[in-house]
Amino acid sequence: MKLDFRPWVIPVVLVVVWEIIVRLEVISASLFPSPLTIVETGWNLLVNGDLMTHIGVSLWRALTGMLIGGVIGFVLGVLNGLSKKSYIYLDTTIQMIRNIPHLALIPLVIVWIGIGEDAKIFLVALGVLFPIYVNTFHGIRNVDPNLVEMGRMYNLKGWSLFKDVLLPGALPSIFVGLRYALGVMWLTLIIAETIPTNEGLGYLATNAREFMQTDVIILSIIIYALLGKLADLIAQFGENRALKWNASYTK
């Protein structure tokens, strides 16, 4: 497989310009350390084991919340997409909750759940639930009726009709929701990890702020960005594999 490095041209150029600006002392290195300084800081944290510990904790929180919120959003999307009665009873309530900024609930979540892991996972799950719900719902509703009718002509019904016609037809929309939800997942986790804790990338950045360690703060932000990009690449790979039958996804 041929690797395409073109998407990384602009990030690399920005890093080089960043290094040059710091070396020319256009900005203070104490406030905005150079990329090489940040790499050195990251290496030191990696060697002593702290970095992988914090990354592991953050990944566990993110993936657990994603799994819980994603499953709930997918089930609700399928249910409301297939059943008019379910849509009438549930969609209005879901939409009302969706329009409440979930990060604004942090004070209430702390009062209700506390400051432990459950609070952070709950916020991530709540954040990813709605993008997956909305896109799953619209994906199911927008499947070509002619395909559904054709499936019925071949005596497909119930689970068979859903598995062979409705779900494949809805997958493009579902994957859009998944990729959007992954971005929301990391955004929510960054804020959720400001809730008092002693592990995770958020703790690493918050603790560094107390000691004015800007290199550690920027390192934490970069790791969040790289993890977000990695998650999107994995989702994109899964999307291309699952939809290789779709003409829009063929090379």
Rank of each mutant, 00 (worst) to 15 (best):
L230G: 12
I68L: 12
W8L: 15
L171P: 00
R23I: 07
K2P: 03
A181M: 11
G69V: 04
P33H: 03
E117I: 04
S173D: 11
K85W: 11
V71K: 10
L201R: 12
L189D: 10
K120S: 04
T188Y: 13
L79V: 15
S30A: 14
L3T: 09
T92Q: 12
I38F: 00
Q95C: 03
G114M: 04
G127I: 03
A225T: 01
M150S: 01
A235C: 09
L123V: 07
Y154E: 08
L227Q: 05
T188M: 14
S58V: 12
M212I: 14
Q213R: 15
L167Y: 01
F74E: 06
H138T: 14
L105W: 08
N142E: 13
T41Q: 03
L233A: 13
K251C: 05
P145S: 11
K84W: 09
K163Y: 00
L156F: 15
K229R: 11
P168G: 00
D144I: 04
P168N: 01
D215T: 09
A181W: 10
A231E: 07
L126T: 02
Q213V: 05
P101W: 11
G139D: 02
L51S: 04
L201V: 08
T53R: 15
L156C: 07
L182I: 14
A181E: 09
G228E: 08
L59C: 07
V17N: 00
G151I: 00
G200R: 11
V134W: 10
T93F: 01
I191R: 07
L76D: 01
L59R: 06
L79G: 05
A119I: 07
R98S: 13
K157D: 15
S173V: 06
V143Y: 09
N146T: 02
W60S: 13
L227H: 06
M185G: 11
L171F: 03
N44T: 09
L105R: 10
N146F: 01
I218W: 10
E19H: 15
P168H: 01
A181K: 12
G116E: 07
F32V: 01
L161H: 03
L3S: 06
G42F: 00
G202C: 13
R179Y: 08
L90Y: 01
I222W: 02
S58A: 12
L3F: 02
V111A: 03
Q236K: 12
Y203L: 11
V184T: 15
